[in-house]
């Protein structure tokens, strides 16, 4: 924010004078716009929280805030013997965390290499990443399903209905565009830094590990957060691969709740949704600044 702030505060200081009526009207209109936008942004989130606190079994039109808020829905959600929500929650966190670690590790190496080394096929590789990235993998489900089934006959733990298979799929899927983001970021780090380290006798690995990687923190955190959010939020691939109830993720579970026969328990679904959103928000808030830095640095370099 620094540049913008400096710039605008200096202007504000130089032009400080009593608030004119015109400015008042301007402020009023801007606040009106802000309130409208905030309503648009916040109401859905508030609505799901309020619905989760509504003890009534189904939604009845017109009531936004429940008359007698209570935590029954949460109790019901967490006490269900047959739908182990807590287990799903742990599964989701586990899958998303491991995916994040793998993706961050692989993409920082690859992004660094693509930025710093010139080798045959580099341009083709980057083009391939861009093009393959748009392959509609949802539609390749039959192929992925068959492949995992076959792998599973030899190595059981990367077959269908395993977390390992899902993690590998997510890691691969999120590598593509992230590699390019890392590359753009590394491009913006002066190459002289590496060169002087190499001249001092460091190996390329040491240069990367001790010189470049620490500077890459914002992009690494950005990719980590984005990958985590994507892996945690996916339900399409997970739904096809995961079957046994103890293996499901929160998102697949929520979809299960949503099928026809569960409709009457809308309160329970919303309670599940609220709880499911918490980890992401907890991760996002403290890291928000880095994400903004990481994303914008990449985009600005283009």
């Amino acid at each position: 924010m620094d540049a913008v702030q400096n710039h605008s505060t200096s202007r504000a200081v130089s032009m400080r004078k009593p608030i004119s009526p015109r400015k008042l009207v301007r402020y009023f209109l801007l606040y009106l716009l802000a309130v409208a936008l905030i309503l648009f942004a916040v109401i859905p989130a508030l609505w799901v929280v309020s619905a989760s606190l509504n003890p009534a079994k189904s939604l009845i039109g017109g009531t936004f805030f429940p008359a007698e808020p209570s935590f029954v829905n949460y109790e019901e959600l967490l006490s269900s013997e047959f739908f182990p929500y807590a287990k799903w929650f742990v599964n989701s966190l586990k899958i998303a965390s491991i995916t994040t670690v793998i993706t961050v590790f692989l993409t920082s190496l690859a992004g660094y290499a693509l930025s710093r080394f010139r080798f045959q096929g580099r341009r083709v590789l980057m083009l391939a990443i861009l093009v393959l990235n748009v392959f509609p993998s949802i539609l390749a489900m039959v192929a992925i399903f068959s492949m995992l089934q076959q792998l599973g006959t030899v190595i059981e733990w990367i077959g269908l209905d395993t977390h390992a298979a899902l993690i590998l799929l997510y890691s691969t899927g999120s590598m593509g565009i992230n590699v390019l983001l890392v590359k753009a970021y590394v491009d913006s780090i002066p190459v002289e830094l590496d060169e002087s380290a190499l001249v001092d006798g460091a190996t390329p690995w040491q240069t990367f590990r001790h010189i470049v990687f620490p500077i890459m923190t914002p992009i690494v955190i950005t990719i980590g957060v984005l990958t985590f959010i994507a892996a945690y939020g996916d339900f399409v691939i997970a739904r096809v691969l995961l079957k046994s109830s103890e293996n499901l993720t929160v998102m697949v579970g929520l979809q299960l709740f949503q099928t026809d026969r569960f409709d009457q328990d809308f309160g329970v679904i919303t309670a599940g949704a609220v709880l499911a959103a918490i980890p992401i928000i907890l991760i996002y808030i403290p890291l928000q600044k880095y994400v903004i830095d990481g994303l914008t640095a990449g985009s600005v370099k283009g």
Partner: peptide, 30 residues
Amino acid sequence: AGLLLLGVNTAAFAQDTQLTLWIYDDGRLE
């Protein structure tokens, strides 16, 4: 190694003879 551990952990309960029954609605689950 991490992946292997993960796999061992997942594969542990897939060994013994068991039957799986899939139902499409929850009314009779219990």
